[in-house]
Design a protein around this nucleic acid. Sequence first.
DNA 1: TTTTATTTTCAGTATTTTTTGAAAATTAAA
DNA 2: TTTAATTTTCAAAAAATACTGAAAATAAAA
Lengths: 171, 171
Amino acid sequence: MYICGMELQEAKEKFIQTWGALGSQWGINRTMSSIHALLITSNEPLSTENIMEQLKISRGNANMNIRALIDWGLVKKQLLAGERKDYFTASKDVWEIARVIAKERRKRELQPVIEIVSELKDIREKNEEAEAFKEVISNMENFTTQVDRVLEKFVKSDRNWFYRSLLNLIR
Amino acid sequence: MYICGMELQEAKEKFIQTWGALGSQWGINRTMSSIHALLITSNEPLSTENIMEQLKISRGNANMNIRALIDWGLVKKQLLAGERKDYFTASKDVWEIARVIAKERRKRELQPVIEIVSELKDIREKNEEAEAFKEVISNMENFTTQVDRVLEKFVKSDRNWFYRSLLNLIR
DNA sequence: TTTTATTTTCAGTATTTTTTGAAAATTAAA
DNA sequence: TTTAATTTTCAAAAAATACTGAAAATAAAA
């Protein structure tokens, strides 16, 4: 019985809940981030059934979201000797997690925007209104390609570069 | 009649559509980002009715989302002399837009996570499993507070600092 | 091969989120 | 005042999204 502080189980549940809520605020579905959080906090690989049980979700739901996580590169299958079931793990390394998420979002979201912005430059009209629009688009292209380059660097970098760069930025 | 390239109107519509889709991928509702995009590309302030017409949405919907945008600091009311209606504008400055979005998301999302992570540190248990969890949480606290500091700096910085920093990062 | 365990799929259902539209509230002019 | 224009609210409807559960597919063991 703990007077202050909290028990491990309670903390894990709170973490799973928070991670889930955070994900859904960022356009990732709640179950997917909850499963991710569960795996992050689990000290051993979990099977689909473990996950279904602990999060009280159906097999179909578990299966779909595990696959999505694997697709993102956030979760890996682990074959356990003598076991027929698949087991799953997630990296506990926060920097690595951030790196993978940045990599995927760059690919899935930033790249398409850059493409479309680049298309939108081709306007022939020459009046004031058109020029103003072109100016916005041109700035946006500038901005997105710069951000893209930074993300690319981050994704390819190592932990030391990242933490060193952060320090430089806030210096 | 244009052979290649596109007309201004078409480009604007494409931009509005893209911006809307992007927003919804990032947990901001599609109408809200579409209104924002419409205002970014408009060369004059627009009234609620203008917005309703151009995006084909209801008055209630327009009103709620305009207010949300004002709440975020992305849109401003503009009183037009001799007009009774409210008119709205949005900054066309991409850097400024990014700054405001970073500011709001930092306040609304990063801060709460930092708070919760800090709470989760108080675990009394001392077994191996608890230590592993504490390690994850501690790294997460580290990471989030560092990112928070960079965002704070960005939010308070000027355009020059930002572009200079980006250049330094990718150098 | 057949049997059994496991994973995948997906139509139907449930839930959540967004939107509408009309009534109520507010604001400014008459 | 009263009247008219405008904005806000919010219950109900619609749309989008997520979830279930059972059947089909796959893979491994017997």
